[in-house]
Amino acid sequence: MNKNDTLVKTLFVGISLCLVCSIIISLTAVGLRDQQKLLKLKDQQSKILSSAGLLTEQKSIDELFITIEERVINLETGEYVDSIDPKTFNGKKFESEDYSKDLTTSIQLKSDIDISSLKRRENFIKVYLYKEDNNIRAVILPVRGLGLWGTLYGYLAIEPDLNTIIGLEYFSHKETPGLGAEVDNPRWKTKWRGKKIRSSTGEFKIEVIKGLVSPESPESKYQVDGLSGATITSRGVSNMLAFWLGELGYEKFLNKLKVEIEKEEALNV
């Protein structure tokens, strides 16, 4: 028998190899953790800024992000929650998704209302307000929902009238490159600018349609071109907006915010 094949030698080689490898891996993982977190945070911040069209080459993300006010809100009541510090709110991937896994801080969604396949919805979520001279200039809301291959995570920025879209930006998705992944295409993203969410009667209208929007159509201000070859992703985007801007999403918050903004405007006039 080969001298290497004794039980003692086998165990010795196995154990020492595992020990060495695990020590090296843990050291690297711990050593790089801060750097990884930082990059992840930067990536999200850049998406938040770019959804509201605030991202520019001249200024760093840190400088730009100072102008953004982070607030935690309660989706059930639509009010600000000051007891939770927005700085420590961070969950894992989607900033509030961890809360949706906790039974006490989320609600179960029945399949007929769960159009974005979220299963549970958290009660607390962090929103971002962009202010200039204390006036709200943009409201940035996290949205997420199922596409074709997985959940898309992104930010929707709307104007202070709370009905006009500034931009929609995804920071994480698993869609097919060239088809569904065109949600990242800068041309497609510019198509959202200026689209209206609801009609003047308050009916929810915004959607991604199949094919191109005809500019003559009276509906065109509520419609965005579909992604060709990606019907399910396009529908996922529509559903996600319908869910998050609806009753179970930000509707209560937006209604309260609207009153607040109008009050401020009245004061300014």
């Binding site: 080969n2 290497n4 094949d5 004794t6 030698k9 086998t10 080689v13 196995g14 190899l17 595992c18 490898c21 695990s22 090296i24 891996i25 690297t28 993982a29 790089l32 990884q36």
Partner: peptide, 23 residues
Amino acid sequence: IPTNVRMIVQITLIASLVVLVDE
């Protein structure tokens, strides 16, 4: 490397390196 566990030893080494690169 003991011959009967050589594949496992190789995989352990490769997997550790891959985790490093990924991190």
